[in-house]
Every structure is written in structure tokens, then in C-alpha cells.
Design a protein around this nucleic acid. Sequence first.
DNA 1: ATGTGC
Length: 487
Amino acid sequence: MTTYDADGVTLEKVRDYVWEIPQEGGMNRPARVLASEDLLDEISEDKTLQQLKNATHLPGVRKYAICMPDGHQGYGFPVGGVAGIDAEDGCISPGAVGYDINCGVRMMKTNLTYADVQGREEELVDALFEAVPSGLGGGGVHQGTKGDVDAILERGMEWALEEGFAVPEDLEHCEDEGVRHDADPDRVSQKAKDRGKNQIGSLGSGNHFLEVQRVTDVYRDDVAERFGLSEDQIVVLIHCGSRGLGHQVCTDYLRDIEQAHAGLLDRLPDKELAAAPAGSQLAEDYYGAMCAAINFAWVNRQLIMHRTREVFADVFDTTWEDLEMDLLYDVAHNIAKKETHEVEDGEERELFVHRKGATRAFPAGREEVPPAYRDVGQPIIIPGSMGAGSYVLRGGEESLSETFGSTAHGAGRLMSRTQAKQEFWGGDVQDDLREQSHVYVKAQSGATVAEEAPGVYKDVDEVVRVSDALGIGDRVARTFPVCNIKG
DNA sequence: ATGTGC
């Protein structure tokens, strides 16, 4: 048997790109890493594998905890981690969802081609930077009232539709149709609501961005045609989350769960994995609050998209409808959701599927896939770095049996933000991108550009190649940046 | 990720 020895953890090769950490000690199940050997070399450099092992200690974890090819260490649980945990006798863990609840990405199409924007990149990036709020702190597209925040938390993109920030087709092209009906705004603290009130429609900082891109490659003609994608087409990618509101929800419930379920915590190998037992009051409360934060993030991305449509209409002196600026799809990267899956003994169970830095990747036929894509599989959007472009995939046939219907979410960091700032200088990164790749970057902070330099990320091509080879997410098209705004 | 911290 082929094995891979990382520091303190031995993995057994199951087949190409599938590695297993066998069950031992307090593990309730084995763990699996889906990666090439090159990616595994990177994954094994930080605490990812230990965190993945730790996750299998959570009560009710089913089949195996999984690390995606873009995995790296996170708070308690890997970013790029997936755990399907029994919703009846298991638990729910905020650390396995992440601080930025429903951090995610949407792609909007246009009928413009690269030739239409060439020579106008500067004008476009300036107009977008001016119109779309970004950076740390407050200021959003819409200054919300207390009532707005409650309505957003309760109804998600249905609120945006009522307020004229969306058209019905936007909701039809969003995961969960842009609303989690399990949301309970009363379970979100006033502090979280106050933080969110003036951040409705704002990018934030860190790896969040808005990017105008051109489609460079199409790999599956039939699926690309169904998605409305073709070479040289201009598209817009929006990557952001639930800002301070989601962060506060995570903080609030981590503290409460640590205190109320100290007994369970004592049996876990890492305090950061704090979990509420299924059926407990805090499990219900956290789920309701998390779903509300999910709704907030969808509205956030919707309002940024709405503003982007206005900018394009202005710059190109027409209407967004004439530019056919339609939403391809919006996918969540940091969520937990009740879903029914076949587990290890062939039984169908309701699970809290935790996807932290992982994308739902449902294939054709699955009822949660919206009618527009039910017969081809859902679109999956995987952003790469500023220098590497991004991918559109579609849900693969193997995802339901291998990954609870999930795949990767991005390139994955190679180094810390602190290290990145020592290696790169923002202005140089911007100059290099413009001169070598014709990519126009505008940011609130040079430090953010350094932290997000292309060199701090893993090879997104390799991540997507593994997803495609495993059949969990099939490569459809590749894009490359034209201009990018960020915090 | 984040009014970047208990």
C-alpha cells in the first residue's frame, strides 16, 4: 500500500487523488484528503491534517471528514473542510462553518466582449471603485434601518426583490433561491445587527473583491452553452460575505456553546471545535442565527451586483438589461445546511453538512438544483488569485457519493498575511499585474494587495484539475481578470 | 474573515 507520511500523520492512498487517515483513538470515523501529491505537500505544511483528524472526533460525524484539494488550516477546522454530521444524534459546530458566514461568490454575465472593454479598463475600474463600498468598517450601498436588517435576516433576497434591488431571475439563479427559510432574526444579537446595519452592500477587506473578467477557455461546450458562457465574453465576479454581522454571530455562539456544552468540549481535542449537540437549544438557536447571516450575505452580494449593473450602464451608455447582465449563479462557501445524504451503511440520513471553504457541487437531478440547471448540474464558481483567473465548473456525478455533494472553493493560501507583507509590496504587485498581464487593480490599502498577491496562493489550475479528475466538479470554463477592486 | 485585541 502506498502511504504518505506527514509530520505525525500517515495517510493511506485509496486511489488517485484520494488519501485516507484511518480511524484510531478518539476518531469516530476516518478522514480523507482529496489531493494530488503536490497539493498534499502543501496541505501537510500547516495544521490542516491534525485539524481534519480532530474534526472526526465530533459526535455523529458520518462516513469521513473530508479535506478538499485547496485545504489549509483555519479556526479549529480546515478551510476546505467538509463534514456531514448527523442532525439527529450529532452536533453543529460554528468553527466548522467559519467566521465569515456565507462568504461566497457570484458570477454575473454580460454580452460584452473583451474588445469592448480594452482601452477602457482604467475608466471602468475607477467607476467601480467609486461606486462599490470596500474596506474595513462601515458604509454600504444601502443605509439600513433596524427594520431593514430584520427583514433582510428573515427574507434574504426576497427583501432585495421587494425593495427594487433585484429581479425575480436573480433569485432563480442563486443557491437556495437567495433565502434560507430556517432563519430566525430573533436569535441574532443586537450587537451583530448594529454591525450589519451600515454594511449592507459592501465588499469588506482581505480576499474579498469585485473583478471584471474575460472568458479565456471553454472545456465543455454543451454545458458552457447552457450556462450562457463563451470565449472572450466579459463577466463579473463578486466575492464577499456577511461582514461584521456574520462575524459577530460566530463570536456570540462560540462563546455561548463553549460555556453551555463544556462537557462535550472536554471530550474534543481542540477547544476551537466547540459544538452544540443536535436537538439542544443552542444548536437550534445557532442554526437560526447562521441562516439569518446567510440571508444577509446574499443581500450583500445582490446590492453590490445591482450597483455594478448601474456602473456598467453608465460607462457603456445603455441599460443593464441591454447588456444582458444576468446572474449565472451565486454559491455559498461557508455554511452548514440540513441535507439528506446516503451515509456509510447505505442509509439516508438528515445531516448538518458543514462546508467551510467548500462549495456545494450537486449534479443533475438533485432537487435543490434550480430548474434552470436541474438537467445539467449546478454551476460552481471557484475564484483564483488576481494573476491566475477563476473557474466555472458544474456539479459532478461523483460528488454525492464522495463529498456529500461538495468540491473546492478557491486556490487556498500558501502563506500567512504577515509573511505575504514581508515578501511583497502592494504597489509593485499592481505594477507587475498591469505591465505583464494587463490586469488593473485598485484597492483601499496597499497592504491588502500585498496580502493577496498571486504568489501567496496555491495553483488554482491544479485544484480544479483534481476536482475534475475525481468527478466531483467538472471543469466548464476558465476566466482571467481584466480589472479588480478590493478593500 | 473581522470596528484585526480577553
